[in-house]
Write a protein that binds this DNA or RNA. Structure first.
Lengths: 153, 153
DNA sequence: GACTATTTATAAGCCAGCTAATTAATTTAT
DNA sequence: ATAAATTAATTAGCTGGCTTATAAATAGTC
């Protein structure tokens, strides 16, 4: 007889609930600058280094190629990035920020600061201190299966 | 001039990364018992109380009606639940567990225990202690927009 | 050089969230 | 009793993840 646990009291359950709440909030904030929740992470990579290939972005964000592909398309449609064929490699395309894409940074920055402030509000000093480390550890714990063989970072 | 923050060093960023990693892991574990990541939460509600309406489940999980509707359909297709028209209310349908739906509990239970163990591994004693409270606080912090007027819990 | 394997991008399609819009039934108000 | 408003379920369609499969280009091998 397996011992029946109370699902609601597990960390796994709490985490599941948190993830959807967080996603909604992210989507909301990014929506205020006419972005979607996922697009912003691609922009962040391009702000660090322009002209990346899709596969580069996928690797850095630890997301799959088709996911990146779809997002790039969305960003292209709203004129934040453009794709140019790579001259080095006929398969690859280089993703470049447009002026609007570069300009978006300040606006995202503002929203990000707000997001940070939002969670900060309810936490104690101690909690704030340990949170980054804790989240990082959790992510590592939950990074077994998805991206084949990444144990970097 | 807005001060440019380093996105990667924010808690918001870490949380975003964590959520996708977590979702993948959840999907993986639930897949081992032929479920999808979201379906399990509906089952949990029905294990607590059978015969709920879709709107009841939506409210308890703080998800939207169409989301629940789709999941119920999926659960129906794999014969874990059945929908019966409510006699009290012609609009509503009552969701009932099948025998297979009830039997699924033990299997989910096992996976859940594994999931808990997985994150536990990397954490210190102190971290384990404060984590539940911390996650709960975070969820509350991130529950402003989505579900109109919920401040329950 | 030709054949094979790998890699880049993409297409199709799935689940988990969502919003907006529709239908049917119930409730409320007049 | 009828009209209006609300509620329950559903449909269509979006983003963000994913997997599987394909086309084209590159790289490697014989």
């Amino acid at each position: 007889m397996t011992e029946q646990i109370s699902f609601e009291q597990t960390v796994t359950y709490a985490l599941a609930r948190l993830t959807t709440a967080f996603r909604n909030t992210l989507e909301d904030h990014m929506g205020r600058v006419d972005l979607h929740g996922g697009q912003v992470f691609i922009l962040m990579e391009l702000w660090k280094e322009d002209g990346l290939r899709q596969v580069d972005i996928a690797e850095r964000l630890q997301l799959r190629a088709p996911t990146i592909n779809k997002m790039i398309r969305g960003l292209t449609e709203i004129n934040l990035v453009v794709m140019r064929k790579s001259r080095d490699d006929g398969r690859a395309s280089r993703i470049h920020l447009t002026d609007r894409g570069r300009a978006m940074r300040a606006r995202v920055n503002d929203q990000w600061v707000e997001l940070e402030a939002e969670y900060l509000a309810g936490l104690s000093e101690t909690e704030r201190l340990i949170l980054p480390e804790l989240l990082s550890k959790l992510r590592k714990a939950y990074s077994g299966r998805p991206t084949a063989d990444i144990d970097s970072d």
